[in-house]
């Protein structure tokens, strides 16, 4: 058992821990310290979220698809995926219009990673789910309405 490592994990504050891990080479420097986009996650409305992501007013595109159920019985676990056939996709984000904060997650895709991401999200109520995709520096969007019969946020 490596006691030193234990202590670091126990006592290290977030930033200190990250820098320790970074210097130990566990997390590449720069990656770990990439700024979590607080403004985007705190934004309440779709428009504010898009602004915080630097997306402005994305164009609707048929080459972006949101996959998910038409009706989700349990809003706590809604499988949602984003796929796109657009070239050079560098970012994919999932936004849920009527959740307390619209942005669920954003993914940065280095070259070689396909624009095909699946995850599971919580939905408070029936809402449009948007997929935001950045392709060749431009933003595109698509949406799908998912009906929720039982909310997944508190209650």
């Amino acid at each position: 058992m490596n006691n030193q490592r234990r202590n670091v994990l126990k006592t290290g504050s977030g930033a200190a821990l990250l820098s320790v891990l970074a210097s130990a080479g566990i997390i590449a420097p720069g990656m770990a310290l990439a700024e979590w986009n607080k403004a985007a996650f705190d934004a309440k409305s779709m428009a504010d979220t898009l602004k915080a992501l630097g997306a402005g007013a994305p164009a609707d595109s048929k080459d972006v698809q949101v996959t998910g159920p038409d009706i989700a019985e349990n809003g706590a676990v809604v499988p949602v995926g984003v796929t796109s056939t657009l070239p050079n996709v560098t970012m994919v984000a999932i936004l849920i219009e009527k959740n307390p904060s619209a942005l669920a997650a954003s993914f940065n895709l280095p070259a070689g990673t396909e624009a095909n991401v699946q995850t599971r999200v919580k939905m408070g109520q029936t809402s449009n789910v948007y997929a935001l995709v950045k392709s060749d520096g431009k933003f595109f969007m698509a949406n799908k309405e998912i009906k929720v019969t039982l909310g997944g946020c508190g209650g």
Binding site: N37, F41, P79, S101, T113
Partner: peptide, 16 residues
């Protein structure tokens, strides 16, 4: 790399 908000489900699943 991913930035994740609190509206991702408990015990998150991710595929890529």
């Amino acid at each position: 790399t991913s930035e994740i908000g609190s509206s991702v489900s408990k015990n998150p699943y991710l595929a890529f």
